[in-house]
Design a protein around this nucleic acid. Structure first.
Lengths: 232, 232
DNA sequence: CATTTAAGAGAGCACTGCTCTTGCTTTGGA
DNA sequence: TCCAAAGCAAGAGCAGTGCTCTCTTAAATG
């Protein structure tokens, strides 16, 4: 697919990309609330109505940016893992991935807010975001799987009803992981983004100063909570 | 203070309250992005320019709602603690407070998003929000203090630079707590809101179904991470 | 009672998302 | 090759927004 179609089609993907780029620029500068279709069009030298040939509404443009943002964090996480895949211990890999996600968030706070802050559009995230949204989670799962194939400290056993959830999730994502580990992983996943969100959204202002060290410490504790053993 | 001033002054506080109430209604209905000064004024039977006698801008109105929301969660947490103060173990109190905060968030998702989601206004939260914003944190600290005055499992020792942060925070909020515990508390605080935010913002959609049990399990793990011992 | 003060009403500015109609250009089939 | 069909840009226009003025009326103060 994407064979050499007519020049018209190529122009279309270029304009589409230009719109997204300019929108991302404005997003990074002023935040999602102030992203204006008219301003994007103005900056691109076209009239606002022309932009509707490419994105049927402002929310659709935002959705496109959301998908791109999910892919960007996901890629950051996957790259961090790839760089450490063979050498380091599972715990070191876990911490490296956590660090990478945090670094991306702090470097792109508005894009981060778009995906992990309050949902901006009419409350329902489109289905197209589901796959890119799970990339970071899958990276974390893969680290835990590698670790638990060897030895690993089992997390505390959850009650039976929760284990049902854990089994279903394990069936979907990691058939060889014990359900209790999957449950702990999901919790760690949410907690990781709690740490990052508080830092990115300014909740640590005048509270935590040594943020790198603080985050490293917390990421280590998260690794422990999913049963990864610490290097001596 | 607040002595019986003229009837005009009383009308002012009443109108101010009515504006905030209507704004809160619209916030709960459609979210912060769609909160409109003109719509609030319209609903109250006044003209939009009159509203500016009470709030100098839309952001100031939002700030007032933010302060109220912080106070509401804070009160929910304090009430939950008060109900269990004498009877239950520190761990049970911790979980009760966590549950109360979560319940408030799920009951008022838009107000929750206002304070723990992406920062809406021009990036700087006013200083007036600082005190109400710390109420939940103070409740968590007080539970840990009660527990650690007796016995408690010390969290892993952070590196020296981080301990400096911990000592400063301890000096501010809990002089009798070991710095390492304070550091762990702040991490648990952020992680708690990570769990709640993911649930409130729909990130657990089609992932976690047994959310009550899941949250209880995670809250228990958080208690453990700050050194609270579990009841046998 | 006179005067200062506060509040509401209304018009208006600059902006937004979005729709509709009007022309122009590229495209693909006869 | 020509011609209809489709894609695209432009412009006007609608309804809505935050916010700022001016004007008038009602209350509080001296």
């Amino acid at each position: 697919m994407s064979t050499v179609q007519g020049a018209r089609a190529r122009a279309r993907v270029e304009v589409t990309a230009a719109i997204k780029d300019e929108a991302r620029r404005q997003l990074a500068a002023d935040g999602a609330a102030k992203l204006s279709l008219r301003a994007v069009a103005r900056e691109l030298g076209m009239v606002s109505s022309a932009l509707y040939r490419y994105f049927p509404s402002r929310d659709e443009l935002l959705t496109a940016l959301i998908v791109d943002a999910y892919d960007a964090v996901g890629e950051a996480a996957e790259d961090a893992l790839a760089k450490q895949r063979t050498a380091a211990s599972p715990t070191a890999r876990w911490i490296a991935v956590c660090r990478a996600v945090r670094a991306w968030a702090l470097a792109h706070p508005h894009e981060y807010a778009l995906i992990y802050g309050s949902p901006v559009p009419g409350y329902t995230a489109p289905e197209t975001t589901n796959v890119p949204a799970s990339r970071v989670g899958l990276v974390l799962i893969s680290i835990a799987r590698d670790a638990h194939l060897g030895k690993g400290v089992a997390p505390p056993k959850p009650p039976a009803r929760l284990l049902v959830d854990g089994e279903r999730m394990a069936a979907d994502f990691a058939p060889d992981l014990p359900p209790a580990v999957v449950v702990a992983l999901v919790a760690a996943w949410a907690q990781l983004f709690g740490l990052i969100s508080f830092e990115a959204f300014g909740q640590f202002h005048r509270v935590v100063e040594e943020r790198d060290a603080f985050f490293a410490q917390a990421a280590e504790q998260l690794a422990r909570s999913v049963g990864l053993v610490l290097p001596a």
